[in-house]
Amino acid sequence: MHNFDYHAPKTLDSALALLRDKEDGKIIAGGMTLLPTLKQRLAAPSDLIDLAALSEMKGVRRDGNGIVIGAMTTHAEVAANGDVQSLIPALSHLAGVIGDPAVRHRGTIGGSVANADPAADYPAAVVGLNATIVTNKRKIAADDFFVSLFETALERDEIITSVRFPIPERAGYEKFRHPASGYAVVGVMVAKFGDKVRVGVTGAAGSAFRASDFEAALEKNFSSEVLLGIAVSPDDLLSDIHCTNEYRAHLVNVMARRAIAAA
């Protein structure tokens, strides 16, 4: 690990001030990706700004027809939350299958979403459930948030404060889990809101995306059978040491069908 200065601001304003002032400051919101990167000396930020002390950004609350999850809420807290379990069980399930117990007790939803790892689970929920990313500056729609590999719409001095999930009529999440890392080789969130259906896919491409062919078919008939004939093009999907884009394309279809069955 390279040397850095560590800050644990007590308020969002002081965190933002640090972020603006420090030449090469980096926010840490759990650190499940950042810490290994630091330990491998692959990153050398001048300052670490830890959001752990921002209690205002922790916790889950009902908000009309939605659930608002503070950015510093851990995966384990989301998985165990009664409101999430009863209103969006698919989201609780998703949070409960992220990584391993240590990761789930340290990693946070804000950290995961801001990091935009292509194989992280939460992006499927953000896209599939049509979440709103709330920052210190604005509200960002799910469809506008993920830009590409590890890249989001967040600006340099912008911090996610919470993520708001509308409550679907039905939703399911299914994941093909990497045995070493626990990341999603492919993860699919399918959600039904009245006559609208959203399908969020993570793990398969550079960033989470919506499977719009699936959505159109499911809006006509919300059943897994309708997806059987709809092939996913492997063209823009990832090929890496773990598997090929063709296999990922196939898995998107399988996971989507199983997510519907679980919804």
Partner: peptide, 26 residues
Amino acid sequence: PEKIWRAIYGAQFDTQESDGIYAEVT
């Protein structure tokens, strides 16, 4: 799983499987 899946679905692909790693569904 990819090797096994390809064995079942046959040679309908242009590319070889990757050297990949096993995965599991949760």
